[in-house]
């Protein structure tokens, strides 16, 4: 399934955002993208993504939300 799947983890307690993100990555496949929204940078997740062939791009919003866009590295 290509396209972007949004995981809004801002109202979730750890470790649910990480679990949902990993499930979402399985769901979108190699061509899709997952957009994770959090109030912090998820360092443990970054390392997992790197080791499993995913790249991520992080931007921050004025309200303190971090937008983390994750997709498979070509």
């Amino acid at each position: 399934m290509a396209g972007t799947l949004v995981v809004d983890g801002r109202d979730m307690l750890p470790p649910e955002p990480m679990e949902r993100t990993l499930e979402a990555l399985d769901e979108v496949g190699d061509d899709g993208e997952v957009l994770l929204l959090l109030y912090r940078e998820p360092f443990p997740l970054f390392k997992i993504l790197e080791r499993n062939g995913y790249g991520h791009r992080t931007t921050s919003r004025d309200d303190g939300t971090f937008e983390i866009r994750i997709r498979r590295v070509a």
Binding site: L22, L25, D26, F43, P44, K47, I48, R51, N52
Partner: peptide
């Protein structure tokens, strides 16, 4: 993907 997780940090 869970089986591949690594938390070396």
């Amino acid at each position: 993907m869970a089986a591949l997780l690594s938390y070396e940090q």
